[in-house]
């Protein structure tokens, strides 16, 4: 879809918002079930938490964090446009601004989550 259309910023912002939203929804379904197990079956919960702390788990968490951060920032952009329709004129600038915040906040966040994986290679310890 994204390759077939000559997509511009507004369409990409919308498509990424939808894709990240559905991804977060899928995680929420899984996450409420695993939190239920804290009371229902603590041993099973502890096993699941080991997956969260594993290398593949951490990579998924970085992707989840990226989806969450993008959806939050672009959601703020949508809200600004909804409340002040005149801002629609600057919707592109707002989108680029959200990417600046995404990178500035997201890169350090990803490094923190991946530290046990990439730390030894970078010499900063786990």
């Amino acid at each position: 879809m994204l390759l077939r259309y000559r997509a511009r910023e507004g369409m990409l912002a919308w498509a990424f918002h939808r894709i990240s939203g559905v991804a977060i929804w899928l995680f929420v379904v899984i996450h409420v079930v695993d939190i239920y197990l804290v009371g229902g079956d603590p041993k099973a919960y502890n096993t699941i938490l080991q997956v969260y702390a594993s290398t593949p788990g951490r990579i998924v968490e970085v992707l989840l964090g990226a989806a969450l951060l993008y959806h939050a920032l672009n959601g703020l952009r949508i809200l600004i446009i909804d409340l002040w329709p005149v801002m629609t004129v600057y919707h592109r600038a707002l989108w680029y601004a959200s990417w600046v915040i995404f990178v500035v906040v997201g890169i350090p966040g990803a490094v923190i989550i991946l530290r046990p994986v990439i730390g030894p290679a970078l010499g900063i310890g786990a």
């Binding site: 502890n46 951490r58 046990p116």
Partner: peptide, 12 residues
Amino acid sequence: HFVFDPSQENAS
């Protein structure tokens, strides 16, 4: 994920 880490989190 930043203040704590999944490796220190469990049911208790």
